[in-house]
Design a protein around this nucleic acid. Sequence first.
DNA 1: AGCGGAACTGTAAGCGGTTGCAAGGCTTGG
DNA 2: CCAAGCCTTGCAACCGCTTACAGTTCCGCT
Lengths: 345, 345
Amino acid sequence: MTTVYDVARVAGVSTATVSRVMRGSALVNPDTRERVLAVIESLGFVPDAYAQGLSNRRKDVIGFAALDRGGAEMDIEQNSVLFVDQIVHAAEAVLRGTGYSLLLTFGSRGQEFEQRVRSLSGKVDGLLMAEEVMPVEDLRGLAKRIPLVVIAGRRDESELDVLVADNVTGMTALVSHLTGHHRYRRLCFVTGPKDAPDARERQAAFEEAVLAGRDSVIEQIIHGDFSEGSGAAAARVLLGRGSMPEAIVCANDQMAIGVLHELQQAQIRIPQDVALTGFDDVYPSRLVDPPLTTVSQPVRELGTRAAQRLLARIDQRALPPQAQTLPTSAVIRVSCGCLPNHGAH
Amino acid sequence: MTTVYDVARVAGVSTATVSRVMRGSALVNPDTRERVLAVIESLGFVPDAYAQGLSNRRKDVIGFAALDRGGAEMDIEQNSVLFVDQIVHAAEAVLRGTGYSLLLTFGSRGQEFEQRVRSLSGKVDGLLMAEEVMPVEDLRGLAKRIPLVVIAGRRDESELDVLVADNVTGMTALVSHLTGHHRYRRLCFVTGPKDAPDARERQAAFEEAVLAGRDSVIEQIIHGDFSEGSGAAAARVLLGRGSMPEAIVCANDQMAIGVLHELQQAQIRIPQDVALTGFDDVYPSRLVDPPLTTVSQPVRELGTRAAQRLLARIDQRALPPQAQTLPTSAVIRVSCGCLPNHGAH
DNA sequence: AGCGGAACTGTAAGCGGTTGCAAGGCTTGG
DNA sequence: CCAAGCCTTGCAACCGCTTACAGTTCCGCT
């Protein structure tokens, strides 16, 4: 690997001068600059970012840690990767302009992953964390040492920068569409994993909204884990009961898609026999037949704002922690029993 | 930020000892070790990875550069992100076990992006590059300085490690299904971007396969760019002609989905009025109605192998360059005119 | 008692950049 | 002709960690 020393030697100058040229300092004679640039070019010199980082006390790297539900072997369809990936792309787009790059780690909760995140924190200037990657107390500890922004973590965190989507209003609107507009009375809910704050919030909002309806009831709560497979399993539970509720509300789209396929396989028609809804409004939700009624989250916006907030905090570590809540809204398509074109595609 | 010096001072030892404890060296007195560990714990010390990297001459980071067709504002549906994201996840899963993490950069071809990749190369031990991120000559130059593995780049590269899917056999099988089994005669093709080697290969294979059929003809080639929108545009071109071909073959699934929606909007039925196929077998392709006949690529496998190959090369820089070709296969669903359950879902 | 060696620990020299400070060369003005 | 001052450049310290090498200390033996 060629270093500044090599360049300096070949160009017949000191390393200080090479460094000045690299960084575009004004105090270098134009002729010298040219000479050094030529050598850099011919040697294909690229400065070692680690040495620079050590000297500059900044690494120009942002870490991104997220849960990878399902482990290494998961396929895209079994997973909520779409959500995470959109956030990654959004964050990367923000950082791109600023010279930072994104360092990824995925994992599933546990010692090993926490260890990985810890060591990651030595490689970066700041950390973006999606969902509840680790216990809150550890999170607080981390935040003391390094700028940290949490995405879709628990809302009630006053000591951390958090970005969340407002699950409540979206879910409330959705349920009131089901119980009000459609007059469905008997509803089921398919939950997400217990360690996902979003999942818990959606469930709570669902329960509250149903109870708020005059005569609607929660017929059953079925546990899922955000995966399509767990949606299919939930459908099988329903099938096993012999009777369908009037509407099935899922904590995310992937599970709704799992439910959809499993029920259709069993000749149950959606929405004629039972209404079905999701949450997230991921890309595939509008592609399935019938198109899924769901709640749209500003996913990219979440990523964008999180990245911006992190940059701000890196700039100014003393910023008071702030929780930003982004709005969600029900998007009515067909699976709830509405006619096509009501508001779709 | 706390450093080894802080730890050493508090623990009353030298930095060398702290370092030994951190790295689990055997030559430290158990009592001393305990004491140092306690201090590390209480100070929340995490070693600066950059200083470690400088000293160890390894960074434990792998770079990943990919094209981000559509720019910063693209949404997931307008983009081939699904493909890239799957590769990222697969590669990350391989690296995870080895202590490496993945440093991402996306961009669209051009000076600025190449510059970004160059500087990225100073931050990593090796580079994974998806598609034709930069001109081949620059790629060769890069590869001289740093271990590099190209995914889905051009095949004919004997000086680089390359991983490609065998577009030809998949496309050939697909076309012969269309012209043989279904006896379609008049086919159209929607191309991908010119700078994507995969797109070029698929087109060439398509043309060759059609010409190989006795009486089938290429009715029209329509230019697309892998985005769903460009598929819709292609459909509009067809609609504008007044007549449909018998089959529309798209260079990827996203464009096929765009075509599908646009044609259905115009009351054209798939596959009754015109057959349609995609390429890649991304997750949504089985969700659309009708399910898309397409060609399945071992995307995750591509990412996995690329990462493994890169690790091997980092271990042993002198390895002779190698091109690995992974098989693809036609997956027959409904959009080609076959009945459901032929081989689907 | 004196010595060899094992077990620990400390000293200090890098790793490859950056940058404050000082020095050398020139220009300019008195 | 000399001093002052600007422009360039080099010297060397430092960023935080690792590790070769050089002590210390403490045993066990002879």
